[in-house]
Simulated assay, not measured.
Amino acid sequence: MMPEELRRGRYVSLTTFRKNGTGVATPVWYAVEGSALYVWTRSDSWKVKRLRNDPRVEVAVCDLRGNIAEGAERFTGTGRLVEGEELRRIRRLLARKYTWQFWLTDVPAMLVRLGKRPHTGIVVTF
């Protein structure tokens, strides 16, 4: 079951883990559908590289800068990297949640990349 605070939040701090076990937190946009949390990120990001080595993740609702409110609950889950049709679905979910903000960042980036989509989706299950 998806925690209610994750359904309402605007950003989550997504913590992925280095080979030595050290957690690295990054604030990200996300969407929730059913019992999974979905994230869209660049394929060459460090969080993708870390998830390839260790699927453990921790998430907590945060602000734009990644600050987590004192006493906020943290949730442990498993991250899975996806591409293809699942990635397109994540893109649609985020576009629906963030509307013009998502398009404002995605379309110019797509033009710079000349239509290439070096992105990967992350599906987090709890």
Rank of each mutant, 00 (worst) to 15 (best):
V24S: 03
T22N: 10
V123M: 05
R80Q: 14
D63Q: 11
L93C: 03
Y38F: 15
A69W: 03
A25Y: 10
R50K: 06
T78N: 08
R7A: 04
H119P: 00
R10W: 08
V112Q: 05
V123E: 06
K97E: 07
M1C: 00
R80T: 14
S43C: 08
V61K: 03
Y98R: 04
I90P: 11
G23A: 02
E33M: 05
T16Q: 09
A60E: 11
R89W: 10
T76F: 12
K49A: 14
R92T: 15
V39S: 10
R50L: 13
W100C: 03
F102Q: 02
F126Q: 06
E83H: 05
W100H: 12
L87W: 11
L64E: 15
G115F: 10
V32L: 10
T78H: 07
D63W: 12
S43H: 08
R56F: 13
S43D: 15
R96A: 13
N20D: 15
L51P: 02
V61Q: 07
T16M: 02
V107H: 04
L87Y: 11
V124F: 04
E73P: 07
K47I: 00
R113L: 15
A72C: 03
K19F: 09
N20I: 05
A60H: 09
S35H: 13
L111Q: 08
C62A: 03
N20A: 04
G34N: 13
L6Q: 00
A25S: 15
P118N: 13
V123Q: 06
Y30Q: 06
M110D: 12
L51K: 02
D63T: 00
F17L: 01
F126P: 13
I90M: 08
A95M: 11
D106S: 03
R52L: 15
L111A: 12
A109D: 14
L81W: 05
S13H: 01
T15R: 02
A69T: 04
K97M: 06
T78G: 05
S35L: 10
V61L: 11
A25Q: 05
R74A: 11
T76M: 09
D44L: 11
V12L: 12
R52E: 15
I122R: 00
K47A: 00
F17D: 07
S35A: 13
P27F: 00
R10A: 01
A31Y: 10
V82G: 07
N53F: 07
K97P: 08
G84S: 07
K47E: 04
G84Y: 12
K97I: 02
G77S: 05
P55F: 02
